[in-house]
Amino acid sequence: MSLFRFLKARGTAPVARERLQILLSHERIAVGPRDLVAILRDELLATIRRHVEIDPEKLSVKMDRAEGFSTLEIDLEIPCDKVALAVQDAAPEEATAA
């Protein structure tokens, strides 16, 4: 009986490892250096919105940590028509600036 149990048991540590990796990849986004990610997100949103109208929900800012450095991932979806409009709007502005 115990022999069969030994053969069957592959250890629970791999399960622990996997659960932690999944959990932490989410928690680091949610709680990471919270202030910084929130500030960056707000400022990015404000900067982009000056030129293109976007849905705030479509902007994702994530920070992840590795040994010695962190990575910042910015993911934003902009509808095609909005980009075209923004380019047209921006052109005369640049002309006046110059």
Partner: peptide
């Protein structure tokens, strides 16, 4: 326990936390 796979290994913890 770690060598039997019952406990997270040193490598597991280091890999997850990325701290020397």
């Amino acid at each position: 326990r770690s060598s039997r796979g019952e406990m997270l290994s040193v490598a597991d913890v280091l890999d997850i936390l990325s701290v020397p």
